[in-house]
Lab assay of single mutants.
Amino acid sequence: EPSQADLDALLSAVRDNRLSIEQAVTLLTPSSGGGSGGGSMDAKEILTRFKDGGLDRAAAQALLAGRTPA
């Protein structure tokens, strides 16, 4: 399960175009075949909204942490 520091680094990389959204989703869902963790939004949607400015960093982190299976 990614830590808050991992999520923060991942969000920074996506925002700075050092990591594509697809690459980030793969890192967030290493063994689930890329499927959502059952959250209301999947990781790709969360990351896309964050990059487009629709979500701030704290909200994106909380959503990603919340949808990651324990």
Score class of each variant (00 low, 15 high):
1 E>Q: 12
1 E>W: 12
2 P>C: 15
2 P>Y: 12
2 P>H: 14
2 P>D: 12
3 S>T: 07
3 S>I: 11
3 S>C: 12
5 A>F: 15
5 A>Y: 13
6 D>E: 12
6 D>R: 07
6 D>A: 11
7 L>P: 02
8 D>P: 03
8 D>K: 05
8 D>V: 05
9 A>P: 03
9 A>R: 09
9 A>S: 09
10 L>Y: 03
10 L>A: 03
11 L>Y: 02
11 L>V: 02
12 S>R: 10
13 A>D: 08
13 A>L: 06
14 V>W: 02
14 V>Y: 02
15 R>T: 06
16 D>Y: 04
16 D>N: 07
17 N>I: 02
17 N>H: 06
18 R>V: 14
18 R>H: 11
18 R>I: 13
19 L>A: 02
19 L>I: 15
19 L>T: 04
20 S>L: 03
21 I>G: 01
22 E>V: 07
22 E>Y: 04
23 Q>F: 09
24 A>K: 00
25 V>H: 03
25 V>C: 09
25 V>D: 02
26 T>M: 09
26 T>L: 15
27 L>G: 03
27 L>S: 05
27 L>K: 07
28 L>N: 01
29 T>A: 09
29 T>R: 07
29 T>L: 07
30 P>K: 09
30 P>W: 10
31 S>V: 07
32 S>L: 14
33 G>D: 11
34 G>L: 13
34 G>I: 15
35 G>S: 14
36 S>R: 10
36 S>V: 11
36 S>F: 14
36 S>A: 15
37 G>L: 12
37 G>R: 09
37 G>K: 08
38 G>T: 12
38 G>F: 11
38 G>E: 14
38 G>N: 14
39 G>L: 14
39 G>D: 12
40 S>W: 12
40 S>M: 14
40 S>K: 08
40 S>G: 07
41 M>S: 08
42 D>Y: 06
43 A>R: 06
43 A>N: 05
44 K>L: 08
45 E>A: 07
46 I>C: 02
46 I>G: 01
46 I>N: 01
46 I>E: 00
47 L>T: 00
47 L>Y: 01
47 L>P: 00
48 T>L: 08
48 T>I: 13
48 T>C: 05
48 T>H: 05
49 R>Y: 03
49 R>L: 12
50 F>L: 03
50 F>E: 00
51 K>Q: 04
52 D>C: 13
53 G>R: 04
53 G>M: 03
53 G>Q: 03
54 G>A: 07
54 G>V: 13
55 L>G: 01
55 L>K: 01
56 D>H: 04
56 D>N: 06
56 D>K: 04
57 R>S: 08
57 R>F: 15
59 A>V: 07
60 A>R: 00
60 A>I: 03
60 A>M: 02
60 A>D: 00
61 Q>K: 15
61 Q>T: 11
61 Q>M: 15
62 A>Y: 03
62 A>I: 12
62 A>C: 14
62 A>W: 03
62 A>G: 06
64 L>C: 02
64 L>A: 01
66 G>N: 11
66 G>A: 09
66 G>Q: 13
67 R>N: 15
67 R>E: 15
68 T>L: 05
69 P>F: 02
69 P>T: 08
69 P>V: 11
70 A>M: 01
70 A>E: 07
70 A>V: 11
70 A>I: 10
